[in-house]
Amino acid sequence: MIRSIVWTSERIPSTEYAVLDEDLNGFTLRGVVICSPSDGPMRIDYHVLLNPRWETTSVSVTTTNSEGVRDFIIVPDASHNWHVNGQEIPAYRGCIDIDLGFSPVTNTLPIRRLGLKVGHSADVEAAWLQYPGFAFVRLPQRYTHLSEQTYIYESQNGGFRAQLDIDEHGLVETYEGIWRTAAIS
């Protein structure tokens, strides 16, 4: 294990435990979110596999609430065609990164993959699993590296903007106005 972290949300009552691991095949991000959106308590388990270049190779998300259990198996192929539970999602074609809307954990992917120098920006398009609702949307994003451990994240064509403070592994410690670190090791 490289790092474990606990986040709390300032928007929706939630706590998340996440782990970043590395092995010969690349990296793994896995975690569990316990949250209470307006429609009642929910547990979200996720597992994201990445190759050594920080490109998404597979994602599994399981939600559990009073309505039951929902599983999402999200797999991009080598040509960046994405499939969710076996069905291709044409809107995701060409995306490299997954963005799990219920967690700051997937901001690590483009931060690590892009390796931006301070003062530089890059645009990416992410395969976004929205939260709440769990709809599948293509999301244009921009990352700007402000200082050694600070980025500006923008999405929705500049309609959303937040400062991200990261650790030495690229994990978000503070996501302005939304998440903050409660514990890290």
Rank of each mutant, 00 (worst) to 15 (best):
I2R: 15
Y17K: 10
S185H: 10
A122K: 03
M42D: 09
S103M: 08
S147R: 10
V172M: 08
S121F: 03
G26N: 02
R30A: 03
Y175D: 04
I89A: 07
F160H: 01
A18Y: 04
W179E: 02
F134Y: 13
P132G: 13
H169E: 10
G101Y: 08
Q130E: 15
V19H: 07
T63Y: 08
K117Q: 10
W7I: 10
P132T: 14
S60T: 15
I34Q: 01
Y153L: 05
E16V: 09
F102G: 03
N81M: 06
L129C: 11
E168H: 14
V69P: 05
S185P: 02
G26D: 02
V75D: 09
P132I: 15
E10C: 12
T62Q: 08
E88Y: 00
Y92H: 05
G94A: 08
S9Y: 00
N107A: 08
D77K: 01
F72Q: 09
R3Q: 14
D167C: 01
V6M: 07
R53P: 03
L20N: 04
P52S: 12
L171A: 00
T56S: 11
E10M: 15
D167E: 00
K117S: 10
S79M: 14
G86C: 09
V59N: 03
V59A: 02
G26H: 06
W54M: 08
E16G: 11
L114E: 02
F72R: 11
W179R: 00
A182G: 01
L100M: 15
T57E: 12
T56Q: 05
M42I: 15
E16T: 11
L116Y: 11
H80N: 14
S36V: 11
T28K: 14
F27L: 00
H120S: 11
G40Y: 04
G86W: 12
F27C: 01
D77R: 01
R138H: 07
N65Q: 03
N85H: 04
E148F: 01
I2K: 15
H169R: 09
E154Y: 09
R113N: 09
L49K: 13
V75Q: 11
